[in-house]
């Protein structure tokens, strides 16, 4: 099987978020990383290739972004992806990203397309589902386990209040979340070295109508200070939760 993993390039999760005139994210001095959910699904794809090489022919990573996203692509190559593709575009809304991906994927053939459940920047959580609909193939989201048994794909997905195990016919879009891998793989020195010779192809993006636009951004207002309650008088907390917050 050929696996394609979609990765997004996002600010490090500890970044202090700022905006330029409330219109755009201020990227000055920001360290960029592979979106944590994408990195987890990527890790699982690579684990599968390493443990079941007979089932996985290749793992390709793809990103829709500007040239500065290439560091993240190369990290994915260092972790173990076979090759990388960057669709040159600076769009950030999910619909355009999914459209760009679908235009490229329609020309290639992949058996499973991996996406993370959400990006830690704009939190759209919709690229995977949109991509599947553009390609008119099934999608399974909230996937917390992925295996190939006797050549068949078996996934576990989280439902609200439990989980379901499914077998899925390829091609399909797998939308992964926490649990699909324990933690992201750290690249080894050998991996970093071999990434030097792996192919990173750049293709030009295609035009797409934007259905939504970001009007502006703002930061949460400073929160009222925490009201401290004496440890000797926990009854006061119950009183506040009942009468002031009205949550119990």
């Amino acid at each position: 099987m050929k696996i394609l993993v979609c990765i997004n390039n996002v600010p490090d999760t500890t970044t202090k978020i700022k905006f330029v005139d409330n219109k755009a994210f201020d990227s000055a001095g920001v360290q960029w990383i592979i979106n944590p959910w994408d990195e987890l699904t990527l890790t699982r794809a690579i684990e599968m290739k390493e443990t079941q090489p007979a089932d996985i022919e290749s793992v390709t990573v793809i990103n829709v972004g500007r040239a500065d996203a290439e560091a993240s692509i190369r990290k994915a190559l260092a972790i173990g992806a076979d090759n990388g593709i960057r669709i040159n575009s600076d769009t950030s809304d999910s619909y355009s990203v999914a459209f760009q991906l679908s235009e490229y994927i329609a020309k290639e053939k992949y058996d499973i397309i991996f996406c993370g459940i959400e990006s830690s920047d704009y939190n759209g959580g919709s690229v995977g589902g949109m991509l599947a609909e553009f390609l008119a193939i099934p999608s399974v989201s909230s996937v917390s386990m992925f295996e190939i048994k006797d050549g068949k794909v078996v996934v576990k997905r989280e439902i609200d209040g439990g989980n379901e195990t499914l077998s899925v016919q390829t091609p399909f879009v797998l939308i992964g979340q926490k649990g699909i891998a324990i933690e992201p793989k750290i690249p080894s020195m050998r991996g970093i070295m071999t990434a030097r010779t792996k192919q990173l192809t750049v293709v030009e993006g295609v035009a797409c109508n934007q259905l939504i636009e970001f009007v502006d951004f703002d930061l949460p207002k400073a929160k009222a200070a925490c009201r401290k309650i004496d440890a000797e008088n926990v009854k006061e907390l119950i009183d506040l939760l009942h009468n002031e917050a009205k949550v119990i």
Binding site: S94, N123, G129, M130, A132, F134, S142, E158, I159
Partner: peptide, 21 residues
């Protein structure tokens, strides 16, 4: 989980702008 799985697909089917969360 269900809304996250369905709403993006419908967005493409209907060419409808989607805002999540």
């Amino acid at each position: 989980n269900t809304g996250k799985a369905l709403s993006p697909r419908l967005s493409v089917s209907l060419k409808a702008g989607l805002a999540t969360a």
